[in-house]
Design a protein around this nucleic acid. Structure first.
Ligand SMILES: [Mg+2]
Length: 223
DNA sequence: GCGACAG
DNA sequence: ATCTTGTCGC
């Protein structure tokens, strides 16, 4: 896949600044006000998995788990063809479109299963232009969203001395606001959804999308 | 100037 | 993101 032209990158930056203005970084839901998040029943997770040497075909996966027990309520996957290459700082333009499609499908076919909050594999406001993948998804789907990155995205003004060092011995994850949730609530909710290092919704979407590809190595994206 | 850079 | 089984450690 070709590297984006300089003009396209500038266009993408303009879009990110516009999206950023639409991000709500406060709690907007009733359940977010309660200490025990009573009222929260469904949490979602999305992820994309790829095959070894193929950068454009991927399996987009969406899972909906019960809260607080993290039981699988729904899952959906779809083979997709990506339209943009991966460029650090512009992940949203590559992964948001196909993931939004799975959310749109769920909204149309099984609206009662729509998650009340979505965990995204990637950053939210913790981004050089405060517009990571979780912000793209949150704003465009108008859904409360939490961004969780497994690795640090180097930012301009941010040095390693910030909040990003963990107390425990395990490798940290980086939580940030995607949309319609406060950072404090996002962090608290993330803790409550973790059975392992990564929040269960994201972990399940990752595991299941990979499992799907493993059993369909000989059935590529044909249509 | 070079390197580093979510997935 | 992906190439990869067993193995060491809490
Ligand atoms: Mg991922």
């Amino acid at each position: 896949m070709d590297a984006p032209s300089e003009e396209l990158l500038l266009q993408w930056q303009r879009e990110q600044f516009l999206l950023r203005e639409r991000v709500k970084e406060e709690d907007t839901e009733e359940w977010q006000r309660h200490p025990d998040f009573c009222g929260l029943k469904r949490v979602g997770g999305v992820d994309l998995s790829f095959i070894k040497g193929d950068d454009i075909h991927a399996c987009a996966h969406l899972v909906v788990l019960s809260y607080p027990h993290m039981q699988l309520l729904h899952e959906d996957f779809k083979m997709v063809t990506l339209k943009a290459p991966y460029v650090a700082g512009f992940l949203g333009f590559r992964e948001a479109p196909p993931l939004l499609q799975t959310l749109e499908k769920l909204k149309n076919e099984l609206p009662d299963l729509m998650p009340q909050v979505l965990f995204v594999d990637g950053n939210g406001l913790f981004h050089s232009r405060e517009c990571g993948l979780a912000c793209h998804l949150g704003v465009q789907a108008d859904l409360p969203c939490v961004g969780v990155a497994k690795n640090l995205l180097h930012l301009d003004g941010v040095v390693k001395s910030d909040e990003h060092q963990s107390q425990s011995s395990s490798k940290p994850v980086y939580v940030s606001v995607g949309h319609r949730i406060s950072l404090a609530t996002a962090v608290s909710l993330t803790h409550r959804c973790c059975l392992y290092r990564v929040p269960e919704p994201i972990r399940q979407a990752d595991l299941r999308s990979r499992e799907y590809l493993r059993s369909h190595i000989l059935a590529p994206d044909v249509s």
